[in-house]
Every structure is written in C-alpha cells, then in structure tokens.
C-alpha cells in the first residue's frame, strides 16, 4: 500500500462517516429521499463493477432485487423466519442464479446477454405469481419489522460502502486488470491467458449478490410485498441510467450520477407523474448523444482542456 492508496482510503472513510451522519440532520421527507438515493448508490455502484469495465449492459438488477424483496416477504410472512436469515438466503439464491445466467450467456456475444436480462425480471415475476397463485394461496405477504427509515438507510450505507471497498480492491487486483483487458479486446484477453468467461461470471455474481441484499433491506419499507411491486423492470433501467449519467468507467462515477438523478426523478414523479416513461427515454437519449462518458467524463475533458 503506497501513499496514494492511504489517501484514497482516507477519503472513502471520511465520505462514509459524513454519509452516516445524514439521518441526524434530515427530516422525514429528506430521510425518505436519502433512503432511495442510498439504495440506488449501492445498486448502481455494484452494477458498474461488472458493466463498467466489460461493457456488458446488465438489465438483471430488478430480477435480483425482486428476489431479495420477495424472499424476505415470503420467508417472514409464511414461514416465520427471521429477516436476517431470509436476507442471507436471498443473497445466495441470487448469486446462484447470476452464476447460471452468466454461464449460459456470457460465453456468447454481449447482445445475447442484454436480451436475456431484458425480460428476466418480468419472467421471474410471472413464475413467482404463478407459483403463488396455484400452490401457496394468493394472500399478501407482510414484512413487519421495527426498522426505522434511518435504520434502513444505515444498512444500505453499509452495503454501498462494502460494494465500494470491494470495487476498490478489485481494481487493484489481477481480476480488475483482467476485466480492463477484456473490455478492450476479449480475443487478446483469452490469448494472454485470462479465463474470460470465469472473470465475467464472477463479477456478475457479485452484482447479483448485492442487488438481492439491497432488495431484502428495502422490503421492510414496503411492509406489504407482492410480486408486481418488487419485480419492477423500470428499476433495472434507472440503475443503468444513473450509472451512465455519472460515468461507469470510474468506481465513484455512479455515485455522482445517483444524487442529481434521484432528486430530479423525485421532482418529475410528483410534478409529471404521467410523463415519467417519456422522460426516462429522453434521459437515455440525452446521455448516449451528449454525455457518452458521463458527468465525470465531462469533468475529465474540462480538466484536460484547461491543462492543454
């Protein structure tokens, strides 16, 4: 570990402590926005761990998130199991599912992967609803805990911090270097001795793991869980857009995207509830055409220009 590493670790810790103090100054309204923002920070950062270097666009977030929320709901409601146990189980289930999806699709071209993840949340929602209606009886699932918004916020912050530190470690490891090479040229990567399929599957499993945990933590906030609520495909797209808005090529990029987008989205959802889909589409187009490297990319370009 050199001086620069110590410096950036210190910066990370300071940011985490500052973020942890937020509940002490925020009122109910801002607390609820804080929870939402923290949820997206954890999701977008873990999304970018995989999709940033490899350029494989994953739309599976909602599927893993839904597994977390749904399993917590069904476990606590139907089987009287503890929240923590169900959170652990859902993380394992999502990780295994991610491994299977990865093994089936990540050997092939990126397009197949995107397409497979595109309908995944919807497909799992159909399956879950079917199983619930035919075999379990279609009553609602209640997640009753005594967690406050602040508790949920701190749990999400812990997850986000864990994702960030993991990403920081990966970037310094052989695996991180391998992913950068894969993102540049997968053929070369294989020929220098990188097990490309395994590297990709491993990272994809990580994003599945964290998305399920986030879904599990958020479940108490809904208190009443049904498949339509937790398997919302829109979530996957929001995560992608926030990560890209910030810039997926840097570890801290997604965080830069989450804060403005969450605030903007909150405002839009209240003022123009009927136009959210349209605006989401326009946001995608805006990013692709005008800020392809995200806000960080803009900043980096400005810095470079002022230097030149």
């Amino acid at each position: 570990m050199n001086g620069k590493d110590v410096q950036s670790l210190t910066a990370i810790v300071v940011c985490i402590i500052a973020a942890a103090c937020f509940p002490f100054i925020a009122d109910g309204y801002w607390m609820s926005i804080g929870v939402t923002a923290m949820m997206y920070m954890a999701l977008a950062t873990s999304w970018a761990l995989f999709s940033g270097p490899t350029h494989y666009i994953s739309l599976a977030t909602a599927a893993f998130f839904g597994i977390g929320g749904y399993l917590v709901g069904t476990g606590m409601s139907d089987y009287d199991l503890s929240f923590w146990l169900m959170m652990a189980i859902s993380a394992v289930v999502a990780t295994v599912l991610a491994a299977l999806i990865g093994l089936a699709t990540l050997r092939l071209s990126g397009v197949y992967f995107v397409i497979f993840t595109l309908g995944l949340a919807e497909m799992i929602r159909n399956l879950v609803s079917w199983v619930q209606n035919n075999f379990l009886g279609s009553r609602g699932l209640y997640v009753l805990t005594d967690f406050t918004d602040a508790d949920i916020y701190w749990m999400l912050l812990t997850v986000a911090a864990a994702v960030y530190l993991l990403g920081w470690l990966i970037n310094r490891s052989r695996l991180g270097f391998a992913l950068r090479i894969i993102g540049n040229d997968e053929t070369v990567a294989r020929h220098v001795g990188i097990n490309t399929a395994w590297s990709k599957v491993l990272l994809f499993m990580t994003t599945g793991f964290f998305a399920a945990i986030v879904g599990a933590i958020i479940a108490p906030r809904y208190s009443y869980i049904e498949p339509n609520l937790v398997f919302k495909p829109e979530l996957s797209f929001l995560v992608v857009i926030m990560a890209l808005l910030g810039g997926a090529h840097r570890l801290w990029g997604p965080i830069v995207g989450v804060i403005p987008f969450t605030l903007l989205w909150e405002a839009i959802s209240i003022s123009f509830p009927n136009y959210t889909t349209l605006l989401l589409g326009l946001a995608f187009l805006l990013i692709v055409y005008f800020i392809p490297r995200g806000l960080i990319g803009l900043i980096e370009d400005l810095v470079e220009r002022s230097r030149a």
């Binding site: 270097f177 540049n184 040229d185 053929t187 020929h191 220098v192």
Partner: peptide
C-alpha cells in the same frame, strides 16, 4: 503458447507498459 495477430491487436485503452504487463500478469 503466446502469439501475435495477423492484424495487429494492441489494447487501445491501456498504456504501453500496461499492454506488456497484460502478458506478464496472466501468461505462462
């Protein structure tokens, strides 16, 4: 077994030294 390609394939997003390190880190 290490190789070069008929149409040269360097890793454009990496610096010169990192290109070489790719071989050193993952090779034989």
């Amino acid at each position: 077994v290490a190789r070069t390609f008929q149409l040269v394939r360097v890793l454009p997003g990496l610096s010169v030294i990192e290109n070489v390190m790719a071989g050193a880190v993952f090779g034989h």
